[in-house]
Amino acid sequence: MLELKNLHAKVVPEDGPAREILKGLSLDVPAGEVHAIMGPNGAGKSTLSYVLTGKDGYEVTAGEAKLDGVNLLDMAPEVRAAKGLFLSFQYPMEIAGVPVMTFVRAAMNSQRKQRGEAEVSAPEFLKLSKIAAAKLRIDPEMLKRPLNVGFSGGEKKRLEIYQMLMIEPRFMILDETDSGLDIDALKVVAEGVNALRGPGRGMLVITHYQRLLDHIKPDRVHILSAGRIVKSGGPELALELEKSGYDQILKSA
C-alpha cells in the first residue's frame, strides 16, 4: 500500500540553510496493516509526515514514495488527500470563522469531486457527523464553533479523529496523536482510530510512547533515528524500547 524507497528529504527554512532530515528511509506498509514509527526527538518523524502529505518547505532529493503504486511526491496536497491520505496533525490549526462542520463538509465534497463522486447531501452529512461525534464523545455544539479556535489540546486531537471518521481515508498518518490526551480521552480516540482499521486501509502511527500502542495495536514497529529506519520488529519492539530506552536499542541496532 504505502511504499517508501530510499527517501531523502531536506527541510528548507525560509531563513537559514537547508538541512537533510531524511537520509534514505525505506518502509513498506501493506494494506490492512498498522505500523508504528518510534524515535527520539529530531529523528525526522514529523518531517516524514509532512513530506508524505506535501507541505511546502520540504524538498525530496532522492528516493520515492508511492501509495498503491502511484507516486505521491508530484501531487498537490489536496490531490494526495483525495487519493485517501490523511494526516492527523501534531498541532492542528485554528481556523477563525470557519465552523467545524462547514470545514469538514467542504473537505469531503472537494475530495469526492476530485474522485468524480457525488457530493454528500446535507441530511447524510448530518447523520454521519452525529455518529462520529457520538463515537468520540464530542459535544455537537462544539462542531458549530470555528475549527479548533479556543479548543483545548485534547479537544483538538479528538477533532482530528472526528475529521478522519468523516473523511474515511484509506491511509492514515497519526502524528503524536496521543500528546495532550489524558488516559480516558486516549481510549476514546483509539477506539475511533480502530474503527477505521480494515483490510483496505493502512496506518502509520508516529509516537514517542508505548501507551498509545496499548490501545492501537501495531502489526509492525519501526525505530527511526537520524533519518533512517534503524530497527524493525513486531509489537514487542515497542515494549523493549519502553523498558531499555532509545540509547540501548540504538547501540544494538
Binding site: E78, F86, F89, A96, V98, A107, M108, Q114, P146
Partner: peptide, 19 residues
C-alpha cells in the same frame, strides 16, 4: 492544513477568507 483535507488551493483561500 486545509489542502491536506483535500480542498484545492483556490477553494482553500476562499474558505479562509470567508472565515
Amino acid at each position: 492544513y486545509t489542502r491536506q483535507r483535500g480542498i484545492g488551493e483556490e477553494e482553500a483561500v476562499a474558505l479562509l477568507v470567508n472565515g
